[in-house]
C-alpha cells in the first residue's frame, strides 16, 4: 500500500461536521484509485462514539485524540497532535474541511510541517506519484488556480463545504480504532478559547446550508426582511444578506455573503432584491442553482442566475413561499 491519506474530521459538541464526511468521501475516492488507506483523525472530548460514523463513511482506520481538556478548539494543541500523528504516519496528504476551524488549523499545520498548503479546494485529482492537482478559486472566484505541491508529502488541503459528495453511509463494519497519545506541554496552549457564544439569528449556518435565501437593498427596510426569512423557513434554508443590508445595520455581519463576507456554495441560492455586484458574486457564484428575483431586468445577478424572475419582490417572494409550502405539503 502507498502512503495513506489523513483526514482531520472536525467535530463540535460531539457532532461531526458535514464537510468532515465530505472530505472522507473524497479521500476514499482518491484512496481507491491509488491504493491508499484513509485514516480519520478526530480530536475533542467525549468523541469515542464517532468512530462508527467515520468508518461507515469511508475511514479505514480511526485515530482518536480524546481528553477533557480538548472540549474547545485550540490551534496550538490541534497542530501539535496532528503534526505528531503526521510524523508518525507519513501521509501523502492531510485533508480537512475549509471551515472556520479548518482554515485556521491548516496554515499552522502546514507551516509546522514546512509543506504545501492549498485552502478552499473545489476539485482534487491525484497523479501516480501521489501529487494532488488541486483546483481552488482565487480573485473572489473570478479565476481558478490549478496548483500542485513541489513535493507530494504531507500536502495540507482544505476542502470547500458542499462541493465534494460524502459516501452513502455503508453498513457498519469494524475498523481499527486507536487512541493518539496527547503530550501535555504545560506552557501551551497560549491562546485559549474561554467561551463559545452562539449567535442569535438563523438556525442553519450559511456556509453549511444546502439552500440559502438572501435579501438585499431591494427589501427597502429591515422590517421587510421577514419576507426572506419566511421563504427560508419554508425551505428549511439559511438566511443571507448583501453587504448593503449589513452596512445599513439591518442584519449582523455574520449574514453577509460576498468578498468581505462568507463564501457559500449551496445547491440553491435565491437572491431577492440583490443587484449581484461582483463583490457579492465572489461569495456565491459557485452555488449549483441560482435564482434571482429583481425588478431591474438589467441587474447583473441575471447574468449568473439559472432562473430569473423580473418583478416586484414584495409580490413574488410571498407567492414563492406559498408555492413552496404547497409543494412540501403535497409530499
Amino acid at each position: 500500500m502507498s502512503d495513506p491519506i489523513l483526514v482531520f474530521c472536525e467535530q463540535r459538541d460531539g457532532r461531526l461536521k458535514k464537510v468532515a464526511l465530505e472530505a472522507l468521501g473524497e479521500a476514499s475516492r482518491l484512496g481507491a484509485q491509488s491504493d491508499r488507506a484513509v485514516l480519520a483523525v478526530v480530536i475533542g472530548s467525549d468523541i469515542a462514539a464517532l468512530a462508527g460514523e467515520l468508518a461507515s463513511h469511508g475511514a479505514s482506520r480511526v485515530l482518536i485524540a480524546e481528553d477533557a481538556g480538548l472540549t474547545y478548539y485550540s490551534a496550538e494543541t490541534y497542530t501539535a497532535i496532528l503534526a505528531e500523528a503526521a510524523a508518525h504516519l507519513q501521509p501523502v496528504v492531510i485533508l480537512m474541511g475549509a471551515t472556520a476551524m479548518g482554515k485556521d488549523l491548516a496554515p499552522k499545520l502546514a507551516a509546522r510541517l514546512k509543506t504545501a498548503l492549498a485552502q478552499d479546494c473545489v476539485a482534487l485529482r491525484m497523479e501516480t506519484d501521489g501529487s494532488l492537482l488541486a483546483t481552488r478559486p482565487i480573485y473572489g472566484g473570478k479565476l481558478r488556480a490549478v496548483v500542485k505541491a513541489a513535493t507530494p508529502m504531507m500536502q495540507v488541503m482544505t476542502l470547500r463545504p458542499n462541493v465534494f459528495p460524502a459516501l452513502e453511509a455503508g453498513p457498519n463494519h469494524d475498523v481499527p480504532v486507536e487512541r493518539l497519545a496527547i503530550k501535555a506541554d504545560p506552557t501551551r496552549p497560549r491562546a485559549v478559547v474561554r467561551e463559545v457564544r452562539a449567535a442569535a439569528g438563523g438556525k442553519v449556518e450559511l456556509t453549511e446550508a444546502g439552500i440559502i435565501v438572501s435579501g438585499g437593498r431591494g427589501l427597502k427596510g429591515p422590517e421587510n426582511f421577514k419576507l426572506v426569512e419566511e421563504l427560508a423557513a419554508a425551505l428549511d434554508a439559511a438566511v443571507g444578506a448583501s453587504r448593503a443590508v449589513v452596512d445599513a445595520g439591518w442584519k449582523p455581519h455574520a449574514y453577509q455573503v460576498g468578498l468581505t463576507g462568507k463564501t457559500v456554495s449551496p445547491l440553491l441560492y435565491i437572491a431577492c432584491g440583490i443587484s449581484g455586484a461582483i463583490q457579492h458574486q465572489a461569495g456565491m457564484s459557485s452555488a449549483r442553482t441560482i435564482v434571482a428575483i429583481n425588478s431591474n431586468p438589467n441587474a447583473p445577478i441575471f447574468k449568473l442566475a439559472t432562473y430569473g424572475v423580473v418583478g416586484d419582490l414584495f409580490e413574488l417572494v410571498p407567492l414563492l413561499t406559498e408555492e413552496v409550502k404547497k409543494l412540501k405539503a403535497a409530499r
Binding site: A110, A116, L133, V147, S285, P297, A305, G308, V309, L319
Partner: peptide
C-alpha cells in the same frame, strides 16, 4: 512549496433563463 500550474476561468454557467408570465404563473 506550492506551484501554480495554470489559471483558468471558472466553469461557465449554463445560460440562465428568465421566467415570463404574470407573477403567480411565473
Amino acid at each position: 512549496r506550492l506551484h501554480t500550474l495554470r489559471l483558468e476561468p471558472p466553469p461557465p454557467r449554463s445560460p440562465g433563463r428568465i421566467i415570463q408570465g404574470d407573477p403567480p404563473m411565473a
